[in-house]
Nucleic acid binder design. Structure first.
Lengths: 161, 161
DNA sequence: TATTGTTATACTCTATAACTATA
DNA sequence: TATAGTTATAGAGTATAACAATA
């Protein structure tokens, strides 16, 4: 860590990283995709850490919220809403159901499909999780003002909706 | 797809999805993390598709850009800049090197480490890739104006830097 | 024959531990 | 002993094909 007499770029980049954390990636600064990925990674990791206390993954939290908003929806609908494939929805739901947070109810008219619902425990937990997620958001975006957060959400929604 | 006489929420959500694409996830609308993830996914997939023509993944493109900006850097530096673990940097570099885009040069003072550089071919390809990435960005964020794109990048940089 | 959910499988991404060769 | 790079491995996440039950 003390190769002070070497004038090579390698040594220089090492020293800079140590001192000023000068970005090695500024040549990618004008790419939205790159900035999006880095920011998403940070916010996501923050949430993963918070949800770990509940032994939940972000996708499971999202699933709970979507089920709450669409009680009785089918697995195929859930998969589409989560942007995952049906087989993934199966294992995700299995976990939620085994933990007593959600349940599958056989459909009357079409016995192939289920209606998916939250249990009372699932609803209660979801309320907590919403607060946790909001707090996680705040922390991960502490550098932004309330106005800027609203601006950001508006811009992001324009992209994917 | 034609269960018209069923008044269950499941059927309703199905129909809505088909007709107005009304979001099943609007209860997550005020979470930055969620919006960030959905937007990132879309922009990322766009880029993945574009880079497929070059048989490259986004991380490989990013690596090329970082190497170009920091010629002679060490693998550990590259790994940190890419936010990946050193073992991942090995396989990534192996691929780039086997394709003649980058090269490892043994360090004079410390024979354990390498200096990493782009080949001439790597530099040439990188120029093309920058254009491809910029175009991919534009397409994926077609709903935004030029001003809004600049706004967005500024906000994202505030989050992760 | 088509569809819902499921199983099995494979491929990628990511993280960790252990090894080598140098220092 | 400590460090740079590497190997091996295991765990998620993701996608596809094939199957069972029902329509």
């Amino acid at each position: 860590m003390s190769s002070k007499s070497s004038p090579t770029p390698a040594a220089a980049s090492q020293a800079n990283t140590q001192l000023a954390d000068s970005p090695l990636d500024s040549s990618l600064d004008d790419l939205i995709g790159y900035a999006l990925r880095r920011a998403q990674l940070k916010v996501f990791q923050q949430l993963v850490g918070r949800l770990a206390a509940f032994d939940l993954r972000p996708a499971q939290f999202t699933a709970l919220a979507i089920i709450a908003q669409n009680p009785g929806l089918m697995q195929a609908d859930l998969a589409r809403a989560l942007a995952i494939e049906p087989p993934q929805a199966v294992v995700l739901l299995n976990k939620l159901e085994s933990r007593g947070l959600a349940l599958r109810v056989r459909c009357k008219p079409d016995k192939r499909s289920y209606g998916i619902f939250l249990s009372k425990a699932g609803e209660t937990l979801l309320k907590q999780l919403r607060e946790v997620a909001a707090l996680s958001d705040q922390e991960a975006t502490a550098a932004l003002s309330a106005e800027e957060r609203q601006q950001l959400i508006g811009l992001l929604h324009k992209i994917y909706r």
